[in-house]
């Protein structure tokens, strides 16, 4: 790596989904669920490309507050103190409503049962269910 200034002790973090950018800011540390286990990224990390599984991604901001997100499977690249997380979906844990998440899970399960045989509907219901389950898991850990 090039000789970067010593005060450069932060990470630029961008979280992208096909539906748009979910987060764009700076953080002191990023903790993401890679396929090989939880992975913490600090400034001046070596360049990295990893595959992520569904789980929770945490950002420690510069003022010590934490942003927690429920993320689906995807990829993360780290390069020159820039962290790029690309997942299918990402939601802020604080914005997840437990009741609604449970309802969504129920709805997805009903849809899955109703979709028997229909390939398209099954796929979409299964994706919904996985997302709802992950969402609930992240919310439960929060409280």
């Amino acid at each position: 790596m090039s000789t970067s200034a010593p005060e450069k002790k932060r990470l630029g973090v961008q979280i992208l989904t096909p539906e748009g950018s979910v987060h764009d800011g700076v953080a002191a540390m990023v903790i993401a669920p890679s396929v090989g286990g939880e992975l913490g990224i600090l400034p001046r990390h070596v360049p990295l490309i990893v595959q992520l599984r569904a789980g929770e991604t945490r950002l420690k901001l510069l003022d010590e507050t934490e942003v927690v997100m429920a993320t689906t499977a995807g990829y993360m690249s780290v390069e020159d103190d820039r962290v790029l997380i690309m997942v299918e979906q990402a939601e802020l844990a604080g914005e997840i409503d437990r009741g609604r998440a449970e309802e969504a899970l129920q709805r997805a399960e009903d849809a899955l049962a109703a979709a028997a045989g229909d390939e398209v509907a099954t796929r979409s219901a299964e994706a919904d269910r996985k997302r709802a389950e992950n969402r609930l898991k992240v919310v439960d850990k929060q409280s």
Binding site: M1, S34, V35, G36, V46, P47, L48, I49, V50, Q51, G74, Y75, E79, D80
Partner: peptide
């Protein structure tokens, strides 16, 4: 390419990762 200049870490291995990336 930035990633070829620096020795990047991959997880899983580059080829396995590429195989995962292609469907996406």
């Amino acid at each position: 390419h930035e990633f070829s200049k620096a020795l990047a870490e991959f997880e899983p291995e580059p080829q396995a990762l590429l195989e995962q990336l292609l469907p996406t």
